[in-house]
Nucleic acid binder design. Structure first.
Lengths: 143, 143
DNA sequence: CCTGGTCAGTTCATCAAACGAACTCACTTG
DNA sequence: CAAGTGAGTTCGTTTGATGAACTGACCAGG
């Protein structure tokens, strides 16, 4: 029995989950956002099966979130770089970090972020694009 | 062989992924945020196996993201309500929607959100908590 | 030349967990 | 009584992760 697919659901969350709702893909993306590009680096960082890593990287390339760039000719060697589409997933990762820091951290969060523009230690905050107020559950409804 | 666990990783994204990075949990949370509370409603909405739904709801209760509230005594009947911890996951879902709307939608996004405070159709935006500028990959680094 | 190391996969056997159907139990309703 | 509802539980099958090993194409050094 094939795993349930959500790609055709008329719902963004379902479609995102279909693409990225597995154990490894968010972590691969996080690593890619940290600058990791090569198969071995991903493998070392995450310690997942090589077949699983291969498959996930392929999927991310297929979906246009990563591209392969050849960095060595013989033998052909590729690195995996985030596309715009892949980089644009950063706010999701940031929101996850925010939630995890608040609710799953034992003490200090594992990692603090500094916003380079204002120089301050920052907390990713999801806000309304129009008025800038933080969006919380209950403050939005279907348009 | 037991699935790799990330709960002890010193990394928020990994911990969040350990808890929520499975196929169904984000969708269950989305449905809960839409107001669904009962076992049958979840089951109907998502069409997943009843055992899988049971297990996921249990996990969410264990993790303190949902609580069971008895709404009928004989036989005992429970509904599943989001806690503060569960509601605070909304920005992650919103960020996923934002990304999905932009990159996975064929035409119009399936769902537009209206922000009740300002009354406008809104786009969830992840910003710096200090200066309010949108956070994109590359604009933050480790503090 | 050979050997060993590196890199990026590929293969394979095993097992956990999803899947989907059916079942179970305790009620309620007609 | 039978049928329906709701919330699980059980069970057999299949999928896909896991972890180890293998493979092939190089390169470097002896």
């Amino acid at each position: 029995m094939k795993r349930t697919r959500f790609a055709d659901w008329n719902c963004s969350v379902a479609r995102v989950t279909d693409l990225l709702g597995d154990w490894w893909t968010p972590l691969i993306l996080r690593d890619a956002m940290r600058g990791i590009t090569r198969f071995d680096e991903f493998h070392e960082s995450l310690s997942l099966g090589r077949n699983t890593l291969t498959q996930r990287l392929e999927r991310l390339v297929e979906e246009g979130m990563m591209e392969r760039r050849q960095y060595h000719e013989r033998p052909p060697r590729y690195e995996y770089l985030l596309t715009e589409k892949g980089r644009d997933f950063f706010p999701v990762i940031a929101a996850m970090m925010r939630w995890g820091d608040r609710w799953l951290a034992d003490g200090d969060p594992p990692l603090r972020l500094r916003h380079m523009t204002c120089g301050k230690v920052t907390t990713p905050t999801v806000v309304c694009s129009v008025c800038g107020e933080p969006l919380i559950l209950g403050s939005v409804h279907r348009a």
